[in-house]
Design a protein around this nucleic acid. Sequence first.
DNA 1: GAGCACTGC
Length: 745
Amino acid sequence: FSSLRKHLMSKSTAKYRKDNQSLQLPIYKHKAKLVQAVKESTFLVVTGETGSGKTTQLPQYLCQAGFCKNGKICITQPRRVAAITVAQRVAHEMQCTLGREVGYQVRFDDCTTQDTELKYMTDGCLLREVLADPGLSHYSVVVLDEVHERSLNTDILLGLLKKVFSNPTEAMKGRAFPLKVVVMSATMETDKLSAFLGDCPVFAIPGRTFPVTCTLGTAVGPKDLQSTGYVKEVVSLALDVHTSEKAGDILVFLTGQLEIERACDLLFEKAESIDYRYDVQDKTVDGLLILPLYGSMPTEQQRQIFQPPPPGIRKCVVATNIAATSLTINGIKYIIDSGFVKQLNHNSRVGMDILEVVPISKSEALQRAGRAGRTSAGKCFRIYTKEFWEECMPEYTIPEIQRTSLTAVVLTLKCLGVHDVIRFPYLDPPEERFILEALKQLYQFDAIDRFGRVTRLGELMVEFPLQPGLTRALLKAASHGCQDLLLSVAAMLSVENIFIRPGHPDKQKEADQSHRALAANSGGVNDFGTLLSVFQQCKSSERPSAWCKDNWIHWRALKSAFSVETQLRDILLRLRDFPVEKFDGNKNELFRRCLCTGYFTNVARRSVGKVFCTMDGHGSMVHIHPSSSLFDKEMELDWILFHDVLVTSRVYVRTVCPIRYEWVKDLLPKLHEVDVYELSSVAREEVTDEEVTKWETREAAKRQSEISAEDALKKVEKRNNENSVSEARARYLQRKLQRQQNKVV
DNA sequence: GAGCACTGC
């Protein structure tokens, strides 16, 4: 006994010895009560601002309290880097090797072992795990962190966990020990969270941040909702701060690469004209270091941002929203907030995703301001007026689940046995038409049947970390034995843009020329083929990174495409269980036919001149984007298929491939045969066998009067484009006009 | 005749 005791004691002192830092964290005082709270209830909401130590300490407390005896403790994060860095820190604090007692799991990187007790992972990873093990049998505690960010995956996990306990499934009953759920969030909306989880207890931990004084401005009012004139304002404000405020770095929030480059140019121009001998009040500041920061920037260049500036020099980082959550820059004391953000919204009226500039929410504005108070008191200068704050900025950002396409989510839920996807317990339910649209698309892909039940194909599809359309095309290819072609194309389409297009006109020409050459080398007939060829050329080249540089291709993006391709290939090998179909034709045609199977919702036919009309039931008028190899060849085309849509001065389709009508002839009527309201009634309730027979009889009757492809065509072409796509375009044009006027002044 | 924020599997 004594030796065992000794062993345990040494374990607790060596393994869990705290350095002074963690004892000083605000959470430490609440340790006993927190552990008690977790013991006493199934759900617990823990709130605490940045600096409270909840992410690093709470899991350790639970581990020490014996929660690891039965199973692991997992802590989810919305981002990869966060999962990895937090795990590293906790492993260091517990003085153990990363990957042993403390580990992390993110896509492509599983750093855990059988013995891992604390597992930090991305929310997406846990969701995949739930698919394989709905009872979460390996875990004793599930901690959802950063819930206030409302990431799509976290929202789904939250609903699933609630559902599991409101109506324990077989999987849960089979558990040997109870599961505990801790939901951690910054202070906002905690009442709502607690109410959602059956009025569970809320535990508040004080944060350790410094006060940030905020001031409103005059540059942007309610009338300037679409204005882009704010760049000039932001620049002059930054210079004001620079010349009148004490030492401390500046962080400016803008919306995109272009805006940032323009602001940096302006800043550079003006900062050069400052005479630092006389103008600057704080004599410790001798100059301004201007640094742009956005996601597609090379990683090396991004790293520069974190270097402390030379003595006497003030750093001014001009960034996108990437600096709001993903990256933390030390030493920031001043924030300049434009009040806008670029956001991808799904529009179910036209069935398209539209990237647009919108005002940020009040909570987001607070978040931005908070970036100035991490190490000392700070100041935040907002360029918008009080009226703008009150009238144009919503309280909270609309959660992702309410503004994205739900096709993949609905399929995941269905595969988890959630039949009624409309009445699933969402913290914030998405609009019903978003769900119906998803059901319709899944039906069209043959992933679910008319009764909303997952088909064999749907079960296969859910295994792939891809957009459903791409998965569908890939599985079609696999059944024809030509998966190699689609594997690389699917990988290329699911990573960030691989074509580099620099800002300087000379280099732009050079890059465009390289890209055109790449398209021509691949046969020059379709953009999907170009992607395939780029993938193959780079992969077989002796020095792939050099090859990318020569051809203006993002090496970082291509590297991830290689990993994705390997992963997809592994999944395909593991499944192997799909029907094999014969096809006698050439490979090029087969390739494009497979694409049609996944993209028949993205088909358009040329109507007048260079304008194409989509066949998705909305009849939107679209143009081929100038970056496409088919641009300027429109008159030779009839039917096309495209990967995505971009709304700017026109509605553009990108990544295009010519197809033949015969290939989609049998698929197109699918777009019109199913009535979403029919699906809706099916979606709401479990279907009995009796009902199935009833439906099948009806369906048989329907099939006789089935709508022909030609009818579908006529139906679509009648519609015009008076919808929100043109609204979005009008907004873009207005912005452009204002930008031009701004330039003239 | 070009204007793609940020995540994630």
